[in-house]
Design a protein around this nucleic acid. Sequence first.
DNA 1: ACTATAGGTAGGAAATCTCCTACCTATCAA
DNA 2: TTGATAGGTAGGAGATTTCCTACCTATAGT
Lengths: 127, 127
Amino acid sequence: MTDTRAGSARPGADAPADAADAAGDRVFAALASPVRREVLRLLREEGPQPVQRIAGRFAMARPSLSEHLRVLREAGLVSERKVGRQRLYRLEAVPLHEVREWLDPFERFWREKLTGLRDLLDDLDEP
Amino acid sequence: MTDTRAGSARPGADAPADAADAAGDRVFAALASPVRREVLRLLREEGPQPVQRIAGRFAMARPSLSEHLRVLREAGLVSERKVGRQRLYRLEAVPLHEVREWLDPFERFWREKLTGLRDLLDDLDEP
DNA sequence: ACTATAGGTAGGAAATCTCCTACCTATCAA
DNA sequence: TTGATAGGTAGGAGATTTCCTACCTATAGT
């Protein structure tokens, strides 16, 4: 007994989470894979492409890539459009804006570090 | 037979990957968890904190949070410093700069979408 | 020295991820 | 129509993640 379980401290209490973040979660999760980040880079640099052409860049079977594309699609990061018997996948960059916005408030922290200001307000914080 | 396995198409051929990306991989992977993103936000807004204080925000046992902190530590996103019998965890934002840099080249794409320019160069790309 | 507290580590269960090999459908070309 | 090609889906193996409950060490206070 007595593991001091939190019990009442749920993150939902002061986080606006709920269903709104679910989409963002999927975006961050999609970016966790180097393969998927590379796919996005590829679509950015070379424009919309059929699956085969994308698959040619990776040392993996095509169905595996199809899975990655599904993850990207469900995160809203790519869209597909049928052209003849192939599917053109196209970058949909808007959800990345959400990542950027999440990142923004951290910017001053790394900027302070990178410009050499270093710790300074770090020692004022512990109460 | 004949599944047209790629075989010779390895991403290492035209990607500078190798060991340099490994660190970045860990950063992106660390951000994939909503819990870990929330920990970073917390350290950013309230400064360095001991594990218990962080753990109080989540509905999970403390050892589980310790695991998350380890992931963040190995990604270089937090550092710890012993103070008495507690460990102060502090945000280390510099690795986030790397994420920002990865994101940057995508900016013009979502900006075009958000400002209503829409598709425009999408139809020039397929050869 | 003894007890309580902070927090890491061990090991395991359940879920999820990532890859694979079939296999299926839809379209184009003969 | 028949065959070849593009690409999704099914199902499964193996690795990884995420949570848990013990359990252990180190420091602080009495």
